[in-house]
Design a protein around this nucleic acid. Sequence first.
DNA 1: CACCGATCTGAACGGTGTCAACATAGATCT
DNA 2: AGATCTATGTTGACACCGTTCAGATCGGTG
Lengths: 211, 211
Amino acid sequence: MRETASAAAKPYHHGDLSRALVMAARRILEAEGPGALSLRAVAREAGVSPAAPYHHFKDKNELLEAVAHEGWMQLGSEVAKARSESPTQRAALTNIGVAYVIFARQNPALYRVMYDGMRDRTEMPLHAKDSDSGWSQVECAIVEAGGDPDPAELQLATIAAWCAAHGLAEMASFREFDSLKESLGGEEGFIRAILDHIGVFIRPGRDRPVQ
Amino acid sequence: MRETASAAAKPYHHGDLSRALVMAARRILEAEGPGALSLRAVAREAGVSPAAPYHHFKDKNELLEAVAHEGWMQLGSEVAKARSESPTQRAALTNIGVAYVIFARQNPALYRVMYDGMRDRTEMPLHAKDSDSGWSQVECAIVEAGGDPDPAELQLATIAAWCAAHGLAEMASFREFDSLKESLGGEEGFIRAILDHIGVFIRPGRDRPVQ
DNA sequence: CACCGATCTGAACGGTGTCAACATAGATCT
DNA sequence: AGATCTATGTTGACACCGTTCAGATCGGTG
């Protein structure tokens, strides 16, 4: 019953469905937004029956978690890139913030899934273990920028920075700020201007000396 | 066909269904969370058929907007209260931030609905007109606390403060910070500690003098 | 009173998450 | 190799969802 002898005959077993499902989900997310992201639609996009995903994810939620995890990984590497490309350690922290917000702005649907999965969770997903997670990178950057290395103080500073970046990531989507953005030289100018007002992001050349 | 002659015979026409629906929605939201908030459930809770809401709201979304609007009003008055009860103008801004985050923490499901409705909106709902909206109160508080009254600068500062508060409102729900909260004297201590790290929130007694 | 418009009901449609029963394919054992 | 086991698919069903539409019911206006 093979389709056309050799080539594209869809096999009964997919081979790597879990990855295919995550990819399909991300495709739908980009193309049609989070509202269109139903489990059935993902299965459809992957060319598979609606029940097939349940052999790889116990839930719709578990699929979304996998998608979110990919997102956090990607964000982590963007952050790492921004940090390593910074000319000075003092500039790194701000650049990390900018990279974070820009990622969220460029992948709004994905970012939404990432944070939605985070909400009713008892722990933050991304940062705990990996030394190159977004979280620990921010910690390092804060210390390197002259922040207080005392663990308790550092944790507070990191939380503060993360709060600001997340808040800005969500607020930056309001069209209401369009004209303001334009007058600040585009999206990135806007982001930098806001981060400039938030103490945890050291302001090169305007802050008091680091030490 | 009246039930028991006079008293509680459910009338065919409800009288004030729109308000009853909003109230029912908020009840469900508090009791079972945002996941349980279906239009049918709201109608059920209000003791009405699933189609009845459509005579008062064109959409499920429009109902949620009404719920969100109530939330923003409530938040606005909480903020106003916190501001007016502050001993000094310099303390007011921080107290506003604390009140904002505490409101979000005490009404997490409502806050989620409020912001979800905000996301794909072209304008922010709450602040534009009313002089006692949360937004304009923050603006006033910033100026009164010694912030730059230049309009452009003030707008940036307000956005920055709002970003931080919103970010903290969402991050404060992570159980991961439980022990940290405890060591800081509870939820409010935690919130103040974080806001302390954010420049737009003036730090009484630690910041440079206002003028 | 007759009537009209606003409000509510009932039944229906397509879509959704999820599950149980069954089918198939690939791996493993003899 | 053949038999068997397990992982991975499919089909069909269930309850629920948002939404619509035709009809029932009521409050008010002529």
